[in-house]
C-alpha cells in the first residue's frame, strides 16, 4: 500500500471550514475524494465515492449527519465525526466513533487521521 494516498471524503456544511480541511488533508498527504455541503449530497457521495475515510460534520444545517454515517458503516468505510459537541451526543450505534473536536488544529487532525487509517496507510505529514 505504501505510496498510495488515502482518499478522504469531507461532509461539512460550513464552506470556510471545508476549505481548511481540504488544505489540511492535502498537507497531510491525503487526497480529497469529494466535498459535500449538505445531507443530500453527503448521502449521494457516501454511497458512490471510492474512498478510504470520511470526515463528517455531526450537524449539517440543522440535520444530523448520522444517515451518512449509516451508509459508510454499511460499506465498511471508516469515518470520524467533527463536532463542537461532545461524543455523548452520538446515537447508540455510533457511540464508539472517533470525534474530532471543533475548533481543531492541524496536529489534532493528523493524529485522528492516523488513528482512523490505522496501519493501512503511512502519512508523510509532519506534526
Amino acid at each position: 500500500m505504501s505510496g498510495l494516498k488515502p482518499r478522504v471524503l469531507i461532509v461539512e456544511d460550513e464552506p470556510i471550514i471545508a476549505m481548511m480541511l481540504e488544505e489540511h488533508l492535502l498537507d497531510a498527504g491525503c487526497e480529497v475524494a469529494g466535498t459535500a455541503q449538505n445531507l443530500e449530497k453527503g448521502l449521494v457521495l457516501a454511497g458512490a465515492t471510492e474512498m478510504d475515510l470520511a470526515i463528517l460534520d455531526m450537524i449539517l444545517g440543522s440535520q444530523p449527519s448520522f444517515p451518512v454515517a449509516d451508509i459508510l458503516a454499511a460499506r465498511g468505510i471508516p469515518f470520524m465525526f467533527a463536532s463542537g459537541f461532545g461524543s455523548n451526543s452520538l446515537p447508540e450505534e455510533h457511540r464508539g466513533q472517533l470525534v474530532l473536536h471543533k475548533p481543531f488544529h492541524y496536529p489534532d487532525l493528523v493524529r485522528s487521521l492516523r488513528l482512523a487509517l490505522g496501519s493501512r496507510f503511512t502519512l508523510e505529514a509532519s506534526v
Binding site: E14, I16, I17, M19, M20, E23, H24, G84, F85, K102, P103, F104, H105, Y106
Partner: peptide
C-alpha cells in the same frame, strides 16, 4: 453556546488559511 463554537471554528479556519 452552539453559535459561539461555530464562530470559534470559523475563526480558526480563517486564521489557518490566512497564515497559509
Amino acid at each position: 453556546a452552539h453559535r459561539m463554537k461555530n464562530t470559534m471554528a470559523m475563526i480558526a479556519a480563517i486564521a489557518s488559511q490566512t497564515f497559509r
